[in-house]
Amino acid sequence: MRNEIVIKTQNLSKHFGSFAAVDQISFEVYKGEIFGFLGANGAGKTTAMRMLCGLSLPTSGQASIAGFDIYRQTESIKKHIGYMSQKFSLYEDLTVIENIRFFGGIYGLAPEVIKSKTESLVERLGMSQVKMQLVKSLPLGWKQKLAFSVAILHQPQIVFLDEPTGGVDPITRRQFWDLIYQAADEGITVFVTTHYMDEAEYCHRVSMMVDGQIKALDTPAQLKKIYNEDSMDEVFYRLARGAKRQAD
C-alpha cells in the first residue's frame, strides 16, 4: 500500500481575499488507503476537498491527484475520481437502474459495460426487487449503499466521501463501512470525512485540520499515543479546541 502515491499536495493553499481557508497543507495518500480527513466545522475541509476534486483552483502550492495536475488537468481528475456526499448522491426521481445508467454514461463507460455492470451491481446489492423503483422510495440506508456503488462504478483511483453516513441507523452505518473496506481491498483509495469519531478509528490514517492547516496526521493508534488519549474523540477534542476560527 505504501508504494504508490495517489494524492500528493505540497503547500496547497486557497485564499478568499485575505482569508486563508486552506493554509499550506502538505500530505500524501497511498493507493488502497482509507484516509480520514477530519476537522471542526469551518476548519477548511470542504475547501480542500473541492480543490482535490478539481472543482476549485488553488491560490498557491502544488498537488497531483491520481497522477493529474490540480491546475491544468482538472477534467482528467474528475474522470478518475468518484464523489459521494450525504447531500448529493443520486437522482431521487430516477429509478435504481436509471441512476446507474446515468452515472455510467456521465463517466463515459461503454453501453455494454454499463449494461453488465448494472446487472451485477443490482444483484450484489440485493436490489433486484426494487430496481425499477424510484430512488426516493428507498430507505436511506439502501440509497447510501447504492450511491457509494455508483460513485465507484467507473473504478476510479480515488473516491471522496463527504460525511457519507450521517443520519443512518447503527447497523446500516457499519454495513456502509464494509463497502468501504471492500473498495479499499480492491485498490480504490478512500478519502472520507465524518463527524462520527468511532469511524475515525476505521481509517488507516487520519489527518486533523485546524484553522486551515493540518495539525496532525498519523494512524489512529499513533495519534492516541502521541496525545496520550484513550479515544479519537478525545484526540479530536484536544486538537480542535485550540481553533481560533468561528465554526461555520
Binding site: 476537522g39 471542526a40 466545522n41 460525511e163 450521517g166 463527524h195 479530536f236 465554526a247
Partner: peptide, 10 residues
C-alpha cells in the same frame, strides 16, 4: 447537533 463537529456538539 446534526452535522455539527464534536467540539461544538459538546
Amino acid at each position: 447537533t446534526t452535522g455539527v463537529d464534536a467540539v461544538s456538539r459538546k
